[in-house]
Simulated assay, not measured.
Amino acid sequence: MTALVIGAGPAGLMAAEQIARAGHKVILADAMPTPARKFLMAGKSGLNLTKDEPPEALAAQYPETWIHPYVTAFGSAQMQDFARDLGIDIFTGSSGRVFPTGMKASPFLRAWLSRLDALGVQRHTRWHWTGWEGRAFLFDTPEGPQPVDAKVCVLALGGASWPRLGSTGHWAGLLAIKDIDLAPFRPANMGFHVAWSPHMQPHFGKPLKSIAFLVGAQSLRAECILSARGFEGGGIYEISSKLRNGYPLALNLLPDTDIATLTDRLARPRGKESLSNHLRKATRLDPVKLALLNEWARPLPQDPEALAALLKHLPVPLGAPFPIEEAISTAGGISARALTSDLELRALPGIFAAGEMLDWEAPTGGYLLTACFATGFAAGRAAAERLSSSV
Rank of each mutant, 00 (worst) to 15 (best):
Y367H: 08
Q61C: 12
S76M: 04
M79F: 03
L4D: 07
G216Q: 08
A212R: 14
I328Q: 12
D181H: 11
N245F: 02
Y367R: 08
A111H: 14
G333S: 09
L157V: 09
L285W: 06
H24N: 04
A212M: 10
T141A: 05
A260Q: 12
T330D: 05
L47M: 15
A15Y: 02
L4T: 01
C372S: 14
D258M: 06
K178I: 03
R270N: 11
I328W: 07
L343F: 07
L311P: 08
L368V: 14
F322V: 11
G12Q: 03
L387V: 12
R110I: 12
H199C: 03
E17Y: 05
N189E: 06
L49M: 13
A308S: 13
L113C: 10
D286M: 08
W196E: 00
P198G: 00
G158S: 05
P301G: 08
E344R: 04
T50V: 09
L339C: 09
C153R: 04
G93Q: 13
R186A: 15
A15G: 03
I90N: 07
P69M: 01
V148I: 15
S95R: 08
L243F: 08
D359M: 02
G366L: 06
R229A: 10
G234P: 12
W360T: 05
R337M: 06
A306Y: 02
K312I: 05
H128R: 15
R123I: 06
R229H: 09
G319Y: 05
T141L: 06
D256K: 14
G131P: 00
A331H: 01
P349K: 11
E325C: 09
A336I: 00
S114H: 13
R123Q: 15
R115V: 07
A354M: 04
P54C: 03
E238K: 11
A378N: 01
A382N: 05
I177R: 15
L314A: 10
T34L: 11
A260K: 13
W66M: 02
R270K: 15
G134D: 01
K272T: 11
H170Q: 14
P248W: 08
P304K: 09
W112G: 04
L262A: 03
R186G: 06
S274F: 07
D256G: 14
S210Q: 15
L314K: 00
V288D: 09
Q122Y: 03
A347Q: 13
S76K: 10
G191D: 00
S114G: 15
M357A: 06
H128T: 15
P55D: 00
L109D: 13
H128I: 10
L368I: 15
D303Q: 14
L155M: 13
L387A: 12
A31W: 02
A136Q: 13
A379W: 01
A327M: 07
H128G: 02
A183F: 00
E238A: 15
H124C: 10
R268D: 00
H170R: 13
R244N: 10
P33F: 13
W129D: 01
G9P: 11
L266H: 06
P63N: 04
